[in-house]
Amino acid sequence: MTTTVHTVVDSPCGLLTLVGRDNAISGLYMTDQRHRPAQERFGPRDDAMPVFAEAAAQLTAYFAGDRTGFDLDLAMDGTPFQVRVWAALREIPYGETVSYGELAEAIGRPGASRAVGLANGKNPIGIIVPCHRVIGANGSMTGYGGGLDRKRWLLALEGASMQPMLG
Rank of each mutant, 00 (worst) to 15 (best):
G20I: 04
R21V: 07
R21F: 00
I25R: 00
S26Y: 04
Y29K: 06
M30C: 11
R36M: 12
R36T: 14
P37Y: 01
D47C: 08
A48D: 15
P50M: 06
P50N: 11
P50W: 02
V51D: 09
V51E: 06
A56P: 01
Q58A: 11
L59D: 05
L59P: 02
T60H: 09
A64Y: 00
G65E: 01
G65K: 00
D71M: 04
A75T: 13
D77H: 14
G78I: 09
R84M: 12
R84W: 01
W86Q: 02
W86C: 05
L89M: 12
E91S: 13
G95D: 09
E96I: 11
E96P: 07
Y100S: 10
L103E: 02
A104Y: 01
E105I: 12
I107N: 00
P110K: 11
P110W: 12
A112P: 02
A112Q: 06
S113Y: 09
S113M: 05
R114L: 08
V116R: 00
L118W: 05
L118E: 07
L118P: 00
A119Y: 02
N120Y: 01
K122T: 09
N123E: 07
I125E: 02
I127F: 04
V129E: 00
P130G: 09
C131V: 06
H132E: 04
R133I: 15
A137Y: 06
G139F: 07
G139Y: 03
T142K: 06
G143F: 15
Y144L: 11
